[in-house]
Design a binder for these strands. Structure first.
Lengths: 205, 205
DNA sequence: CGTGAGTTTGACCAGATGGTCAAATCACCA
DNA sequence: TGGTGATTTGACCATCTGGTCAAACTCACG
Protein backbone atom coordinates (compact mmCIF):
# COMPACT_ATOMS: atom_id res chain seq x y z
CA UNK A 1 0.00 0.00 0.00
CA UNK A 2 1.04 3.56 -0.73
CA UNK A 3 2.23 5.42 2.37
CA UNK A 4 0.22 8.58 2.55
CA UNK A 5 2.42 11.29 1.12
CA UNK A 6 2.75 14.64 2.87
CA UNK A 7 2.78 16.27 -0.57
CA UNK A 8 -0.25 15.82 -2.74
CA UNK A 9 -0.16 14.88 -6.38
CA UNK A 10 0.22 17.89 -8.67
CA UNK A 11 -3.06 18.75 -10.28
CA UNK A 12 -3.55 19.00 -14.01
CA UNK A 13 -3.41 22.80 -13.76
CA UNK A 14 -0.25 22.69 -11.68
CA UNK A 15 1.49 20.51 -14.20
CA UNK A 16 0.46 22.74 -17.07
CA UNK A 17 1.44 25.98 -15.38
CA UNK A 18 4.73 24.76 -13.97
CA UNK A 19 5.70 23.57 -17.42
CA UNK A 20 4.64 26.84 -19.02
CA UNK A 21 6.64 28.80 -16.47
CA UNK A 22 9.81 26.76 -16.96
CA UNK A 23 9.46 27.03 -20.72
CA UNK A 24 9.01 30.79 -20.52
CA UNK A 25 11.84 31.12 -18.01
CA UNK A 26 14.17 29.21 -20.31
CA UNK A 27 13.42 31.71 -23.05
CA UNK A 28 13.94 34.73 -20.89
CA UNK A 29 16.89 33.61 -18.76
CA UNK A 30 18.81 32.28 -21.75
CA UNK A 31 18.29 35.49 -23.65
CA UNK A 32 19.00 37.98 -20.88
CA UNK A 33 20.82 36.18 -18.06
CA UNK A 34 19.58 35.92 -14.51
CA UNK A 35 19.86 39.57 -13.65
CA UNK A 36 18.58 40.74 -16.99
CA UNK A 37 15.43 38.65 -16.79
CA UNK A 38 12.41 40.03 -14.99
CA UNK A 39 9.63 38.14 -13.29
CA UNK A 40 7.05 40.16 -15.20
CA UNK A 41 8.64 39.14 -18.47
CA UNK A 42 8.58 35.48 -17.57
CA UNK A 43 5.00 35.73 -16.32
CA UNK A 44 3.87 37.48 -19.50
CA UNK A 45 5.58 34.87 -21.68
CA UNK A 46 3.96 32.09 -19.67
CA UNK A 47 0.56 33.74 -19.95
CA UNK A 48 0.20 34.31 -16.22
CA UNK A 49 0.04 37.30 -13.93
CA UNK A 50 3.06 37.94 -11.74
CA UNK A 51 1.37 36.99 -8.46
CA UNK A 52 0.06 33.87 -10.11
CA UNK A 53 3.52 32.88 -11.22
CA UNK A 54 4.78 33.43 -7.70
CA UNK A 55 2.06 31.08 -6.52
CA UNK A 56 3.88 28.27 -8.31
CA UNK A 57 7.46 29.24 -7.54
CA UNK A 58 8.45 31.09 -4.38
CA UNK A 59 10.94 33.40 -6.10
CA UNK A 60 12.84 34.25 -9.26
CA UNK A 61 15.84 32.41 -7.82
CA UNK A 62 13.75 29.29 -7.38
CA UNK A 63 12.66 29.26 -11.00
CA UNK A 64 16.23 29.63 -12.11
CA UNK A 65 17.44 26.90 -9.79
CA UNK A 66 14.68 24.54 -10.93
CA UNK A 67 15.65 25.14 -14.54
CA UNK A 68 19.36 24.60 -14.01
CA UNK A 69 19.10 21.45 -11.96
CA UNK A 70 16.43 20.06 -14.22
CA UNK A 71 18.57 20.58 -17.31
CA UNK A 72 21.98 19.61 -16.01
CA UNK A 73 21.32 15.92 -16.46
CA UNK A 74 20.16 16.38 -20.03
CA UNK A 75 23.22 18.43 -20.63
CA UNK A 76 25.67 15.83 -19.44
CA UNK A 77 23.91 12.77 -20.82
CA UNK A 78 25.97 12.60 -24.01
CA UNK A 79 29.19 12.46 -22.02
CA UNK A 80 27.74 9.81 -19.72
CA UNK A 81 26.93 7.76 -22.80
CA UNK A 82 30.61 7.48 -23.77
CA UNK A 83 30.90 3.71 -23.74
CA UNK A 84 33.92 1.80 -22.58
CA UNK A 85 33.00 -1.14 -24.79
CA UNK A 86 32.58 0.73 -28.05
CA UNK A 87 35.22 1.60 -30.61
CA UNK A 88 37.16 4.54 -29.11
CA UNK A 89 37.20 6.84 -32.13
CA UNK A 90 33.59 6.09 -33.01
CA UNK A 91 32.51 6.66 -29.42
CA UNK A 92 34.20 10.02 -29.31
CA UNK A 93 32.86 11.04 -32.71
CA UNK A 94 29.39 10.04 -31.61
CA UNK A 95 29.78 12.20 -28.51
CA UNK A 96 30.91 15.13 -30.62
CA UNK A 97 27.98 14.72 -32.98
CA UNK A 98 25.48 14.50 -30.16
CA UNK A 99 26.89 17.64 -28.59
CA UNK A 100 26.76 19.51 -31.87
CA UNK A 101 23.21 18.39 -32.37
CA UNK A 102 22.33 19.68 -28.94
CA UNK A 103 23.78 23.04 -29.85
CA UNK A 104 21.51 23.06 -32.85
CA UNK A 105 18.38 21.81 -31.15
CA UNK A 106 18.76 23.15 -27.63
CA UNK A 107 20.54 26.48 -28.04
CA UNK A 108 18.56 28.07 -25.23
CA UNK A 109 19.76 25.47 -22.79
CA UNK A 110 23.33 26.02 -23.92
CA UNK A 111 23.07 29.76 -23.49
CA UNK A 112 21.47 29.34 -20.09
CA UNK A 113 24.58 27.55 -18.89
CA UNK A 114 26.87 29.90 -20.80
CA UNK A 115 25.33 32.90 -19.12
CA UNK A 116 25.79 31.30 -15.76
CA UNK A 117 29.37 30.17 -16.38
CA UNK A 118 30.66 33.35 -17.92
CA UNK A 119 29.59 35.23 -14.83
CA UNK A 120 31.45 32.91 -12.52
CA UNK A 121 28.68 30.34 -12.00
CA UNK A 122 27.63 31.83 -8.66
CA UNK A 123 24.60 29.53 -8.47
CA UNK A 124 26.09 26.22 -9.65
CA UNK A 125 29.69 26.39 -8.57
CA UNK A 126 29.29 23.56 -6.11
CA UNK A 127 27.69 21.24 -8.64
CA UNK A 128 30.56 21.88 -11.02
CA UNK A 129 33.29 20.90 -8.62
CA UNK A 130 31.44 17.84 -7.35
CA UNK A 131 29.15 16.18 -9.89
CA UNK A 132 30.66 17.57 -13.07
CA UNK A 133 34.23 17.03 -11.93
CA UNK A 134 33.47 13.44 -10.92
CA UNK A 135 31.94 12.64 -14.30
CA UNK A 136 34.78 14.25 -16.23
CA UNK A 137 37.39 12.51 -14.06
CA UNK A 138 35.80 9.19 -14.84
CA UNK A 139 35.60 9.77 -18.57
CA UNK A 140 39.09 11.25 -18.71
CA UNK A 141 40.36 8.05 -17.13
CA UNK A 142 38.58 6.05 -19.82
CA UNK A 143 40.15 8.18 -22.54
CA UNK A 144 43.54 7.67 -20.94
CA UNK A 145 43.07 3.91 -20.96
CA UNK A 146 42.26 4.02 -24.66
CA UNK A 147 45.42 6.02 -25.23
CA UNK A 148 47.47 3.57 -23.19
CA UNK A 149 46.15 0.81 -25.42
CA UNK A 150 47.22 2.79 -28.46
CA UNK A 151 43.68 2.87 -29.78
CA UNK A 152 43.65 6.65 -30.12
CA UNK A 153 46.49 9.16 -30.23
CA UNK A 154 47.79 10.46 -26.92
CA UNK A 155 46.55 13.94 -26.04
CA UNK A 156 45.65 15.62 -22.77
CA UNK A 157 42.32 13.93 -21.97
CA UNK A 158 40.83 16.84 -20.02
CA UNK A 159 41.63 19.34 -22.72
CA UNK A 160 40.23 16.91 -25.26
CA UNK A 161 36.92 17.07 -23.43
CA UNK A 162 37.11 20.84 -23.06
CA UNK A 163 37.74 21.14 -26.78
CA UNK A 164 34.61 19.16 -27.57
CA UNK A 165 32.56 21.40 -25.32
CA UNK A 166 33.96 24.59 -26.76
CA UNK A 167 33.85 23.61 -30.44
CA UNK A 168 30.25 22.46 -30.25
CA UNK A 169 28.69 24.89 -27.81
CA UNK A 170 30.28 27.81 -29.63
CA UNK A 171 27.60 27.47 -32.29
CA UNK A 172 24.80 27.90 -29.77
CA UNK A 173 26.39 30.38 -27.39
CA UNK A 174 27.85 32.73 -29.98
CA UNK A 175 25.22 32.11 -32.61
CA UNK A 176 24.85 35.82 -33.46
CA UNK A 177 28.53 36.17 -34.18
CA UNK A 178 28.67 33.03 -36.29
CA UNK A 179 25.66 34.11 -38.30
CA UNK A 180 26.91 37.67 -38.67
CA UNK A 181 30.07 36.29 -40.28
CA UNK A 182 28.56 33.48 -42.33
CA UNK A 183 25.60 35.42 -43.67
CA UNK A 184 23.02 33.08 -45.12
CA UNK A 185 25.03 29.88 -44.91
CA UNK A 186 23.71 27.41 -42.34
CA UNK A 187 26.40 27.18 -39.63
CA UNK A 188 25.74 23.55 -38.82
CA UNK A 189 26.08 22.51 -42.44
CA UNK A 190 29.78 23.22 -42.38
CA UNK A 191 30.43 22.73 -38.68
CA UNK A 192 29.56 19.05 -38.64
CA UNK A 193 32.08 17.89 -41.24
CA UNK A 194 34.69 20.34 -39.97
CA UNK A 195 34.61 19.17 -36.36
CA UNK A 196 34.44 15.58 -37.52
CA UNK A 197 37.66 16.10 -39.44
CA UNK A 198 39.30 17.78 -36.48
CA UNK A 199 38.83 14.75 -34.26
CA UNK A 200 39.56 12.15 -36.91
CA UNK A 201 42.92 13.74 -37.59
CA UNK A 202 43.67 14.54 -33.97
CA UNK A 203 42.91 11.07 -32.66
CA UNK A 204 44.14 8.85 -35.47
CA UNK A 205 46.54 6.52 -33.62
CA UNK B 1 49.94 77.00 -36.02
CA UNK B 2 47.43 74.82 -34.26
CA UNK B 3 43.83 75.54 -35.21
CA UNK B 4 42.01 76.30 -32.02
CA UNK B 5 40.11 73.14 -31.17
CA UNK B 6 36.53 73.33 -30.07
CA UNK B 7 37.32 70.63 -27.53
CA UNK B 8 39.95 71.37 -24.95
CA UNK B 9 42.78 69.09 -23.98
CA UNK B 10 41.76 66.64 -21.26
CA UNK B 11 43.16 67.75 -17.93
CA UNK B 12 45.34 65.56 -15.76
CA UNK B 13 42.36 64.80 -13.54
CA UNK B 14 40.15 63.94 -16.51
CA UNK B 15 42.70 61.51 -17.84
CA UNK B 16 43.11 59.82 -14.48
CA UNK B 17 39.40 59.53 -13.75
CA UNK B 18 38.35 58.40 -17.21
CA UNK B 19 40.96 55.66 -17.03
CA UNK B 20 39.88 54.63 -13.54
CA UNK B 21 36.26 54.46 -14.65
CA UNK B 22 36.99 52.30 -17.69
CA UNK B 23 39.17 49.99 -15.62
CA UNK B 24 36.45 49.64 -12.98
CA UNK B 25 33.77 49.21 -15.62
CA UNK B 26 35.75 46.42 -17.25
CA UNK B 27 35.84 44.60 -13.93
CA UNK B 28 32.17 45.03 -13.25
CA UNK B 29 30.73 44.55 -16.74
CA UNK B 30 32.84 41.47 -17.42
CA UNK B 31 31.80 39.90 -14.14
CA UNK B 32 28.09 40.70 -14.21
CA UNK B 33 27.12 41.64 -17.76
CA UNK B 34 25.59 44.95 -18.79
CA UNK B 35 22.32 44.52 -17.00
CA UNK B 36 23.90 42.98 -13.92
CA UNK B 37 26.35 45.81 -13.47
CA UNK B 38 25.25 48.91 -11.55
CA UNK B 39 26.57 52.41 -11.87
CA UNK B 40 27.08 52.58 -8.11
CA UNK B 41 29.24 49.48 -8.25
CA UNK B 42 31.41 50.92 -11.01
CA UNK B 43 31.68 54.25 -9.23
CA UNK B 44 32.68 52.57 -5.96
CA UNK B 45 35.30 50.46 -7.70
CA UNK B 46 36.67 53.55 -9.42
CA UNK B 47 36.75 55.45 -6.13
CA UNK B 48 34.23 58.05 -7.23
CA UNK B 49 30.73 59.05 -6.24
CA UNK B 50 27.96 58.20 -8.68
CA UNK B 51 27.26 61.78 -9.74
CA UNK B 52 30.95 62.31 -10.20
CA UNK B 53 31.20 59.30 -12.47
CA UNK B 54 28.28 60.62 -14.48
CA UNK B 55 30.19 63.86 -14.87
CA UNK B 56 32.72 61.98 -16.98
CA UNK B 57 30.37 59.70 -18.90
CA UNK B 58 26.81 60.69 -19.73
CA UNK B 59 25.32 57.25 -18.98
CA UNK B 60 25.95 53.62 -18.16
CA UNK B 61 25.41 52.82 -21.83
CA UNK B 62 28.12 55.29 -22.79
CA UNK B 63 30.68 53.66 -20.51
CA UNK B 64 29.86 50.27 -21.93
CA UNK B 65 30.06 51.54 -25.50
CA UNK B 66 33.38 53.24 -24.84
CA UNK B 67 34.79 50.02 -23.42
CA UNK B 68 33.58 47.84 -26.26
CA UNK B 69 34.72 50.04 -29.09
CA UNK B 70 38.00 50.73 -27.36
CA UNK B 71 38.72 47.04 -26.94
CA UNK B 72 37.44 45.68 -30.23
CA UNK B 73 40.62 46.63 -32.08
CA UNK B 74 42.83 44.99 -29.49
CA UNK B 75 40.65 41.95 -29.72
CA UNK B 76 40.95 41.55 -33.45
CA UNK B 77 44.59 42.55 -33.80
CA UNK B 78 45.93 38.99 -33.75
CA UNK B 79 43.71 38.02 -36.67
CA UNK B 80 44.73 41.15 -38.57
CA UNK B 81 48.34 40.13 -38.06
CA UNK B 82 47.84 36.90 -40.05
CA UNK B 83 50.43 37.50 -42.73
CA UNK B 84 50.06 36.53 -46.34
CA UNK B 85 53.82 36.33 -46.72
CA UNK B 86 54.60 34.07 -43.80
CA UNK B 87 54.59 30.30 -43.69
CA UNK B 88 50.93 29.28 -43.58
CA UNK B 89 51.08 26.76 -40.76
CA UNK B 90 53.39 28.93 -38.67
CA UNK B 91 51.20 31.98 -39.23
CA UNK B 92 48.13 30.11 -38.08
CA UNK B 93 49.90 28.61 -35.08
CA UNK B 94 51.17 32.06 -34.13
CA UNK B 95 47.61 33.36 -34.32
CA UNK B 96 46.38 30.54 -32.13
CA UNK B 97 49.11 31.15 -29.57
CA UNK B 98 48.43 34.86 -29.46
CA UNK B 99 44.75 34.24 -28.93
CA UNK B 100 45.41 31.76 -26.15
CA UNK B 101 47.76 34.21 -24.51
CA UNK B 102 45.06 36.86 -24.67
CA UNK B 103 42.68 34.49 -22.91
CA UNK B 104 45.26 34.13 -20.18
CA UNK B 105 46.22 37.77 -19.86
CA UNK B 106 42.99 39.55 -20.77
CA UNK B 107 40.23 37.29 -19.46
CA UNK B 108 38.06 40.24 -18.47
CA UNK B 109 38.06 41.54 -22.00
CA UNK B 110 37.13 38.12 -23.30
CA UNK B 111 34.26 37.79 -20.88
CA UNK B 112 33.06 41.29 -21.69
CA UNK B 113 32.56 40.21 -25.30
CA UNK B 114 31.25 36.80 -24.28
CA UNK B 115 28.59 38.39 -22.11
CA UNK B 116 27.56 40.61 -24.96
CA UNK B 117 27.52 37.87 -27.58
CA UNK B 118 25.72 35.24 -25.57
CA UNK B 119 22.86 37.65 -25.07
CA UNK B 120 22.52 38.34 -28.75
CA UNK B 121 24.99 41.22 -29.00
CA UNK B 122 22.27 43.88 -28.88
CA UNK B 123 24.84 46.64 -28.64
CA UNK B 124 27.42 45.50 -31.21
CA UNK B 125 25.41 43.59 -33.75
CA UNK B 126 26.11 46.12 -36.47
CA UNK B 127 29.86 46.09 -35.90
CA UNK B 128 29.85 42.31 -36.17
CA UNK B 129 28.15 42.14 -39.51
CA UNK B 130 30.22 44.95 -40.99
CA UNK B 131 33.74 45.28 -39.57
CA UNK B 132 34.14 41.80 -38.16
CA UNK B 133 32.60 40.11 -41.18
CA UNK B 134 34.84 42.08 -43.53
CA UNK B 135 37.97 41.10 -41.64
CA UNK B 136 37.01 37.46 -41.44
CA UNK B 137 36.05 37.38 -45.12
CA UNK B 138 39.46 38.73 -46.02
CA UNK B 139 41.36 36.26 -43.86
CA UNK B 140 39.19 33.34 -44.91
CA UNK B 141 40.08 34.16 -48.50
CA UNK B 142 43.75 34.10 -47.56
CA UNK B 143 43.32 30.71 -45.90
CA UNK B 144 41.57 29.44 -49.00
CA UNK B 145 44.43 30.57 -51.18
CA UNK B 146 46.85 28.67 -48.97
CA UNK B 147 44.66 25.60 -49.32
CA UNK B 148 44.49 26.00 -53.09
CA UNK B 149 48.27 26.05 -53.13
CA UNK B 150 48.31 22.85 -51.12
CA UNK B 151 50.27 24.50 -48.33
CA UNK B 152 47.77 23.49 -45.66
CA UNK B 153 45.06 20.86 -45.69
CA UNK B 154 41.68 21.83 -47.06
CA UNK B 155 39.09 22.55 -44.40
CA UNK B 156 36.23 25.02 -44.21
CA UNK B 157 38.10 28.31 -43.67
CA UNK B 158 35.36 30.05 -41.69
CA UNK B 159 34.91 27.16 -39.33
CA UNK B 160 38.67 27.00 -38.96
CA UNK B 161 38.60 30.56 -37.67
CA UNK B 162 35.59 29.86 -35.44
CA UNK B 163 37.40 26.89 -33.97
CA UNK B 164 40.38 29.04 -33.03
CA UNK B 165 38.11 31.52 -31.33
CA UNK B 166 36.21 28.89 -29.42
CA UNK B 167 39.17 26.75 -28.37
CA UNK B 168 41.13 29.70 -27.03
CA UNK B 169 38.44 31.92 -25.57
CA UNK B 170 36.90 28.96 -23.79
CA UNK B 171 39.67 29.19 -21.21
CA UNK B 172 38.80 32.78 -20.35
CA UNK B 173 35.04 32.68 -20.73
CA UNK B 174 34.41 29.42 -18.91
CA UNK B 175 37.33 29.71 -16.55
CA UNK B 176 35.32 28.62 -13.49
CA UNK B 177 34.23 25.42 -15.17
CA UNK B 178 37.71 24.59 -16.40
CA UNK B 179 39.18 25.20 -12.97
CA UNK B 180 36.41 23.30 -11.21
CA UNK B 181 37.30 20.26 -13.31
CA UNK B 182 41.07 20.59 -13.37
CA UNK B 183 41.50 21.40 -9.70
CA UNK B 184 44.97 22.79 -9.03
CA UNK B 185 46.44 22.17 -12.47
CA UNK B 186 47.12 25.34 -14.44
CA UNK B 187 44.72 25.26 -17.41
CA UNK B 188 47.09 27.03 -19.78
CA UNK B 189 49.90 24.61 -19.08
CA UNK B 190 48.05 21.83 -20.88
CA UNK B 191 45.95 23.93 -23.22
CA UNK B 192 48.89 25.38 -25.15
CA UNK B 193 50.40 22.07 -26.29
CA UNK B 194 46.99 20.51 -26.81
CA UNK B 195 45.69 23.21 -29.13
CA UNK B 196 49.01 23.33 -30.91
CA UNK B 197 48.69 19.62 -31.65
CA UNK B 198 45.13 20.05 -32.87
CA UNK B 199 46.14 22.50 -35.57
CA UNK B 200 49.36 20.77 -36.53
CA UNK B 201 47.46 17.58 -37.23
CA UNK B 202 44.45 19.26 -38.75
CA UNK B 203 46.39 21.40 -41.18
CA UNK B 204 49.27 19.13 -42.15
CA UNK B 205 48.98 19.13 -45.95
C1' DC C 1 45.92 86.18 -3.98
C1' DG C 2 41.56 86.32 -6.76
C1' DT C 3 38.82 84.46 -10.20
C1' DG C 4 36.70 81.50 -13.41
C1' DA C 5 36.75 76.98 -15.11
C1' DG C 6 36.91 72.41 -13.69
C1' DT C 7 35.46 69.01 -10.18
C1' DT C 8 32.73 66.92 -6.47
C1' DT C 9 28.74 65.95 -3.79
C1' DG C 10 24.27 65.50 -0.95
C1' DA C 11 19.70 65.42 -1.81
C1' DC C 12 16.49 64.12 -4.73
C1' DC C 13 13.41 61.93 -8.46
C1' DA C 14 10.88 58.64 -11.45
C1' DG C 15 10.49 54.28 -12.97
C1' DA C 16 11.48 49.41 -12.58
C1' DT C 17 11.50 45.34 -9.95
C1' DG C 18 10.89 41.38 -6.64
C1' DG C 19 7.66 40.17 -3.69
C1' DT C 20 3.14 40.22 -0.47
C1' DC C 21 -1.70 39.81 0.72
C1' DA C 22 -6.53 39.65 1.26
C1' DA C 23 -10.20 38.95 -1.45
C1' DA C 24 -12.39 36.96 -5.39
C1' DT C 25 -13.06 33.16 -8.52
C1' DC C 26 -12.80 28.48 -10.10
C1' DA C 27 -12.78 23.28 -10.27
C1' DC C 28 -13.94 19.18 -8.46
C1' DC C 29 -16.57 15.70 -6.20
C1' DA C 30 -19.41 14.06 -2.10
C1' DT D 1 -25.61 21.44 -5.75
C1' DG D 2 -22.90 22.98 -1.99
C1' DG D 3 -18.63 23.32 0.01
C1' DT D 4 -13.74 23.13 0.12
C1' DG D 5 -9.34 23.56 -1.45
C1' DA D 6 -6.92 25.23 -5.53
C1' DT D 7 -6.18 29.15 -8.41
C1' DT D 8 -6.12 33.94 -9.80
C1' DT D 9 -5.82 38.79 -9.27
C1' DG D 10 -5.72 43.98 -8.23
C1' DA D 11 -3.64 46.80 -5.16
C1' DC D 12 0.13 47.59 -2.73
C1' DC D 13 5.00 47.94 -0.73
C1' DA D 14 10.08 48.42 -0.09
C1' DT D 15 14.05 48.57 -2.45
C1' DC D 16 17.05 49.32 -6.16
C1' DT D 17 18.66 51.87 -9.98
C1' DG D 18 19.87 55.24 -13.59
C1' DG D 19 20.03 59.77 -13.73
C1' DT D 20 19.50 65.11 -12.35
C1' DC D 21 20.67 69.41 -10.14
C1' DA D 22 22.08 73.24 -7.61
C1' DA D 23 25.38 74.27 -4.51
C1' DA D 24 29.94 73.76 -2.80
C1' DC D 25 34.65 73.05 -3.35
C1' DT D 26 39.36 72.87 -5.75
C1' DC D 27 42.73 74.04 -8.91
C1' DA D 28 45.64 76.57 -12.09
C1' DC D 29 47.10 80.66 -13.61
C1' DG D 30 47.29 85.74 -14.40
Amino acid sequence: MKPKAKERMPTRIQKKNRAAILEAALNVFSAHGFRGATVDQIAAEAGLSKPNLLYYFPSKEAIHAALLSGLLDTWLDPLRALDENGDPLEEILAYVRRKLQMSKELPRESRLFANELVQGAPRIHDTLSSDLKALVDEKAALLERWMDQGRIARVHPYHLIFSIWSLTQHYADFDVQVRAVLGDEDPFEGAGPFIDTVYRKLLAP
